[in-house]
Design a protein around this nucleic acid. Structure first.
Length: 560
RNA sequence: AACUCCGUGGUGUAACGGUAGCACAAGAGAUUUUGGUUCUCUUUGUCAAGGUUCGAAUCCUUGCGGGGUUGCCA
């Protein structure tokens, strides 16, 4: 477990918790992660999960998983299951504390009735449109509904009949009676309940009356004795309403809502609506497309959960709206994978190499380190023979300056193999290079250096042609070409990166890669980290590029 | 000219009245059987102006800039 150096300082939320503990306001800490089951979890949620579950771990408290399922028209069980899977994958556990806002419907209803009794809520017959128009706007106060002063008894009767199903969708709502002139629009008699004749994923058809988020969230927190209710900045303006309910209802505890800034990443969109659109309109293969910033997407891409946790630690928690560099996430991924991913050789775009002085029927088993960063990872055997494949990028007939790899007359080292020198380039009728004739130096076998002390400038990877596994490799790049796809005119879709996926169908893999389980991430030496995809079959695996290695040569090329 | 939150290198984040630090990114070099890793070094910052103070990123005032809010979504 490597801890980033920044763990010594605490974010403002943990400081508040420290104070609350020190002052005796609370004797323990209870947080909650409250997703709405209407979509898949994404990197933004990861930030919130790491915060809430992380605090629970650090303070010896607990973190509840609570599904905020107050809108049956948008929510589905499919999402509930995927959310649980993703949280567990990230490395967190809610134990016994799985809750649903829908579990509190009866209690919330009773409290609504008590609000009505106290003259703090009323049934409004206005249409949605009328309510909107009379709410006023940012600069002008709203006007009272003609039903605002309805007698308590009438409200009670109407509300009961709303529950009983006597009215159609949208015919009536229950509103809090607060202040139609309040500068915070959320307090201009917010809607508490709306009629929705819809099947709920848990309560079925028991209800046709559903509570709004604002009326549900704080009370749910209070019922669960949440001490610190952490949410994103856009709920800041809702806090006065959150508190209003807690003050006006006989709730069993007084949670405190604290807001922090959501996660933004360059070259990425993070809104559920936009992600849904990418899926529905087939710009990606699904919620778990490896280019998606969903947790299921980055999992399929091969990101280790530890990298996500470290990333969340590094970006910290603040109230300032910021956008994190995607490179920071990739750095976190590389940091973990460099330590943990076993190394293999794979050739993505093969050229055949014939070692003219190597015996035709000979096969040597070469020992190769599994991970130079971790001697305990041991070694494996890789077959070496007369005919090999190397990557097209590792040979140039007319090399530019500073090109260290193979070219006619030059010598390179084959990783865990021998030195080879190129003597002849074989081309087809079209002038395309199809084969290289090389010689190997028997005195340079891996582990021993040439007696004459000569050096080579490069070491390249290879696979034995006769032993190679055919595979498909999917090279993923960022989904969007623009740093801020949301900015500027037009749709974010205008900024989709046309090269975000490149499929290589003729890759040749080292024999040992046949044993890699789906979901495992390995390093293809010199190329990057790759994750075995479920689309693969035993005789034809599919690998997704998780992230490339840093590439000083590519960078130098790009600049010249 | 509503309310509210927020402004620290290119990006993100520390410093709680006392040397502006760290990570990523960028650049230079060393090491290297991965042009990877690792190591060393370097560039770049407190939104502005006043004030309080021996001393201000930090406290005060004003200005400037950015975000959020006008769902019967969450």
């Amino acid at each position: 477990m490597t801890e980033p150096a920044t763990t010594t300082s605490k974010d403002f939320i943990r400081e508040i918790i420290d104070e609350d503990l020190a002052s005796g306001k609370h004797s323990g800490t209870v947080t909650r992660f409250p997703p709405e089951p209407n979509g898949y979890l994404h990197l933004g949620h990861a930030k919130s999960i790491c915060l809430n579950f992380g605090i629970a771990q650090e303070y010896g408290g607990r973190c509840h998983l609570r599904f905020d399922d107050t809108n049956p028209t948008k929510e589905e069980v499919e999402y509930v299951e995927s959310i649980k899977t993703d949280i567990r994958w990230l490395g967190f556990d809610w134990g016994e504390h799985l809750y649903f806002a829908s579990d509190y419907f009866e209690q919330l209803y009773d409290w609504a009735v008590s609000l009505i009794r106290e003259g703090k809520a009323y049934v409004d017959d206005q249409t949605a449109d009328e309510i909107r128009k009379t709410r006023g706007d940012l600069q002008t106060p709203g006007t009272a509904s003609p039903f605002r002063e309805r007698p308590v008894e009438e409200n009670l009767d109407l509300f009961a009949r709303m529950r009983a199903g006597e009215f159609g969708d949208g015919e009536k709502v229950l509103r809090a009676k607060i202040d139609m002139a309040h500068p915070n629009l959320n307090l201009r008699d917010p809607v508490l309940y709306r009629i929705l004749h819809a099947e709920h994923h848990r309560t079925g058809d028991a209800w046709c009356l559903y509570p709004m988020y604002d009326y549900t969230h704080g009370q749910s927190d209070a019922l669960e004795h949440i001490t610190h209710s952490l949410c994103t900045l856009e709920f800041e303006n809702h806090r006065p309403l959150y508190d209003w309910f807690l003050e006006n209802l006989p709730v069993p505890s007084r949670p405190r809502q604290i807001e922090f800034s959501r996660l933004n990443l360059t070259y990425t969109v993070m809104s559920k609506r936009k992600l849904l659109q990418l899926v529905n309109e087939k710009y990606v293969s699904g919620w778990d497309d490896p280019r998606m910033p969903t947790l299921s997407g980055v999992r399929r891409r091969g990101y280790p959960p530890e990298a996500l946790r470290n990333f969340c630690k590094t970006i910290g928690i603040t109230k300032f709206e910021s956008t994190n560099d995607f490179a920071l996430l990739e750095a976190a991924v590389r940091e973990v994978l460099n330590r943990t991913a076993p190394r293999y050789m794979a050739v993505l775009d093969p050229i055949k190499v014939v070692l003219t002085n190597y015996p035709a029927d000979q096969v040597e088993e070469m020992e190769a380190m599994n991970n130079p960063e971790d001697p305990a990872a041991g070694s494996r055997l890789v077959p070496f023979s007369r005919e090999l494949y190397i990557d097209r990028e590792d040979f140039m007939e007319v090399p530019p300056p500073k090109y260290f790899r193979l070219s006619p007359g030059t010598e390179v080292r084959l990783r865990s193999g021998y030195f080879i020198r190129c003597h002849e380039v074989v081309k087809d009728a079209a002038g395309e290079i199809i084969e290289l004739h090389c010689t190997y130096d028997p005195e340079t076998r891996s582990g021993s250096n040439p007696p004459d002390g000569r050096k080579v400038k490069a070491t390249i990877h290879w696979v034995s042609a006769a032993h190679a596994i055919d595979a498909e490799v999917r090279l993923y790049d960022r989904l969007f070409a623009a740093e801020f796809p949301d900015r500027g005119e037009g749709s974010f879709l205008d900024h989709l990166n046309p090269d975000s996926l490149k499929v290589l169908s003729n890759a040749k893999l080292e024999r040992n890669l046949a044993a890699i389980a789906v979901g495992e991430t390995v390093q293809f030496e010199r190329l990057g980290y790759f994750c075995a995809d479920p689309d693969g079959t035993p005789d034809r695996p599919v690998f997704n590029r998780t992230v490339g290695l840093k590439d000083a040569w590519a960078k130098a090329k790009g600049q010249s």
